[in-house]
């Protein structure tokens, strides 16, 4: 009893140190974003800001134009999420509840591409987007991500779990299939739609390779692209500004995560895909 209590305290101590170590980079980023660059260059590094200032943020949004990149990231993530919610649940419903020719082949085809790395398609995708004149436009950033196999998988699994009697009830009332989908099925898909929505928004917000390829001027930069190019350019040594930039990229997602963390973690546990 005594030894098990003591070992329990040890475990709490170790876990506390571990969680502090995991959180440390974020805390350091937040604190660093309100330090001056001179302070960030000090040896040994300071932990608590000596002279807190919001100058880095002011410069980020005035000179570095991060407000515009923030808007681009938001537009892309919102449209991509809406597209996935709508189109993936439509197909998910058809695959889960309806019979149609080619159904099995279609499902196999979609699932077969679940694991294809983004790096495999970006070269021909760029050629395609360039040929239709969508390079350096927001539609060019959005269109390739409007649908994803993962969304179909998730929605199909969820809708399969709904009672099939719903369908018959709708049909007896004379409703068409599309109406049954919109009025009966979709309103019942709340939890699955929430999981899919959060995961898609997150993936879009953090997406990097494709925006890096397609966004070629400041007009279409998303936040990660702007931050990455910023950290390599003439601002590479402006540490305060870069940490403020990293904070602006991370914070909105962190807040969304904290608000919906239960749904997030359930989504990961059931699907196993981040």
């Amino acid at each position: 009893m005594n030894t098990s209590t003591r070992s329990k305290w040890w475990l709490y101590a170790i876990l506390t140190i571990a969680v502090l170590a995991v959180a440390a980079p974020f805390v350091w980023m937040l604190l660093g974003s309100v330090k001056t660059t001179a302070e960030l260059r000090q040896t040994p590094p300071t932990w608590w800001p000596e002279d807190p200032t919001l100058d880095n943020y002011a410069e980020l949004f005035s000179k570095a134009n991060f407000g515009a990149y923030f808007l681009n990231s938001t537009i892309v993530a919102v449209v991509v999420t809406a597209g996935n919610l709508l189109f993936c649940s439509m197909l998910g419903y058809a695959l889960a509840m309806l019979e149609f020719p080619g159904k099995r082949a279609l499902f196999a085809l979609v699932m077969g591409t679940l694991l294809i790395p983004g790096v495999v398609t970006f070269v021909p995708l760029f050629v395609l987007v360039a040929n239709v004149g969508l390079v350096d436009t927001l539609p060019g950033l959005i269109l390739p991500f409007l649908v994803a196999p993962f969304g179909v998988f998730l929605m199909r699994q969820y809708i399969k779990g709904l009672p099939p009697d719903l369908l018959d009830a709708g049909r007896v009332d004379g409703a068409g299939e599309l109406r049954i989908f919109a009025r009966i099925i979709l309103p019942l898909c709340g939890p699955a739609l929430a999981t899919l929505g959060i995961l898609t928004f997150l993936a879009s917000w953090n997406n990097f390779l494709w925006p890096l390829v397609v966004a070629q001027t400041e007009d279409t930069y998303t936040l990660p692209v702007a931050l990455a190019l910023f950290s390599k350019g003439q601002n590479a040594t402006n540490y305060g500004l870069l940490l403020a930039g990293a904070t602006v990229v991370v914070m909105p997602i962190l807040l969304v995560f904290l608000a919906f963390q239960r749904r997030f973690i359930e989504g990961i546990a059931t699907t196993g895909i981040k």
Binding site: P25, L223, L227, V250
Partner: peptide
């Protein structure tokens, strides 16, 4: 979190 942001940090 964005890999780009944590890489910068």
């Amino acid at each position: 979190t964005s890999i780009v942001a944590v890489a910068v940090v």
